[in-house]
C-alpha cells in the first residue's frame, strides 16, 4: 500500500465532568485512550464500535473540531496541531467530513447550489461563473440534476440530502474524507445507493476514506482494513477478511455473533454474552466485565495493541490463544 496519509500517535482525549451543587466531585471520561492508527493513502479504513466508544470523538479530533488531551496526528508527515494560518486552511481543505444526519447538517435557508458552493467561496477558489460550473458538474456526479440546484433542503428526500452533503465535502477536492455514520439515518434501499455512490466517487477522485459506522455489514462492504473500538481504545485492527473470518479479540467476536442471521430458522450461533459497556474501569482491560475468557491478569494490567500476526493487531492478553 502507498504511503501513510494520516498517522495518529498515542492520542488521548479526556473530558472533565464537573460536579453539581450537591456533588462537587469532578469526574473524568476517557473518550479516546492511547490510540495509534495509520491511514494509508487510497484505502478505506473502517472504524466500528458501539455508541459511546469514542469513534466520533476520534473523527472530530482528526478534523480539528476537538483538541486532544495528549498525543499527535501527523498529516503527510506534519503535526496538524501545529498548523497555523495558511497551512491550517490548506489542511481543512484536504480533510472533509460527511455527517450522519442529512437533516440537521444542511442549512435550511440556503439552496442546494449555495450549500455546495460555499466551501469554494470560503477558500476563494475560482470566480462566480467557474464555481457554479464546478458545482453543477459535481452535482451531476453525485446524482443530482441541474433543476434541483435551486431547491432548498426540505424539498429533498433523506438520500438526496445525503448526496448534497457528499457533494459539499467533495467540492474542495479533498484527499481524506471522514464519513461519520453516513448511512445510518437512511432506509435500506437508499443506504445501498449512497454506499455505491461513495465507492464510485472514491475511484473517480482517488479518495481515502475513514469510514465510521456501528454497522458491521456496512463496514465490511466498504472497508479495506477495519479498526474495532471499545470504550476509547482500539482493540483490534486487521484486514477486512481477517476481521470477519478470524477475529482475535473477544469483543470483535461478540459483535460479529450479535449480527442477526439472515437465514431464517437457522439456529442462532451467537454466544449469549450478558452485560453492557461499563465505563469507569481504571485498572486492567476495559472489556473485562463482559469477557467470557477473563483471567486474573485482565483486571490488573491493560493489554496493549500488539501485532499478533502479519498486519493483525489485537489488544488482548490471550490473543491468538483463544
Amino acid at each position: 500500500m502507498a504511503g501513510i496519509l494520516l498517522d495518529i500517535k498515542k492520542l488521548n482525549k479526556t473530558y472533565t465532568i464537573y460536579g453539581t451543587a450537591l456533588n462537587d466531585k469532578k469526574r473524568f471520561i476517557k473518550a479516546v485512550k492511547d490510540v495509534d492508527l495509520q491511514i494509508f493513502k487510497g484505502e478505506t479504513l473502517g472504524l466500528v464500535g458501539e455508541s459511546g466508544c469514542g469513534k466520533s470523538t476520534l473523527a472530530k479530533i482528526i478534523t480539528l473540531l476537538e483538541k486532544p488531551s495528549t498525543g499527535s496526528v501527523d498529516f503527510q508527515g506534519e503535526n496538524i496541531f501545529e498548523y497555523k494560518k495558511d497551512k491550517l486552511k490548506q489542511y481543512r481543505r484536504k480533510v472533509q467530513l460527511v455527517f450522519q444526519d442529512p437533516y440537521s447538517s444542511l442549512n435550511a435557508r440556503r439552496s442546494a447550489l449555495s450549500i455546495i458552493t460555499e466551501p469554494l467561496v470560503i477558500h476563494k477558489i475560482g470566480d462566480k461563473v467557474s464555481r457554479k460550473k464546478d458545482t453543477l458538474e459535481l452535482m451531476a456526479k453525485v446524482g443530482l440534476s441541474e433543476q434541483q440546484a435551486n431547491r432548498y433542503p426540505h424539498e429533498f428526500s433523506g438520500g438526496q440530502r445525503q448526496r448534497i452533503g457528499i457533494a459539499r465535502a467533495l467540492i474542495l477536492q479533498p484527499e481524506l474524507v471522514i464519513a461519520d455514520e453516513p448511512v445510518s439515518a437512511l432506509d435500506v434501499s437508499i443506504q445501498a445507493q449512497i454506499l455505491n455512490l461513495l465507492k464510485s466517487l472514491k475511484n473517480d477522485f482517488g479518495l481515502t476514506y475513514l469510514f465510521v459506522s456501528h454497522d458491521l455489514n456496512v463496514i465490511r462492504h466498504m472497508s479495506d482494513r477495519v479498526a474495532v473500538m471499545y470504550l476509547g481504545r482500539i482493540v483490534e485492527l486487521a484486514k477486512n477478511e481477517d476481521i470477519y473470518n478470524n477475529a482475535l479479540h473477544p469483543y470483535t467476536r461478540l459483535l460479529l455473533s450479535a449480527l442477526p442471521s439472515r437465514i431464517a430458522g437457522k439456529e442462532k450461533k451467537y454466544t449469549h454474552i450478558k452485560g453492557e459497556a461499563t465505563i469507569g474501569i481504571d485498572k486492567g482491560c476495559s472489556f473485562q466485565s463482559r469477557c467470557p475468557y477473563k483471567k486474573e491478569i485482565c483486571s490488573v494490567q491493560e493489554p496493549d495493541l500488539k501485532e499478533i500476526e502479519n498486519n493483525k493487531y489485537c489488544a488482548c492478553h490471550f490473543s491468538g490463544k483463544l
Partner: peptide, 14 residues
C-alpha cells in the same frame, strides 16, 4: 430490499 443489504457476514460468503 434483500439485494440492497450488504449481506456478507450474514451469509458468510466471501
Amino acid at each position: 430490499l434483500i439485494d440492497s443489504i450488504p449481506q456478507a457476514g450474514i451469509t458468510g460468503a466471501n
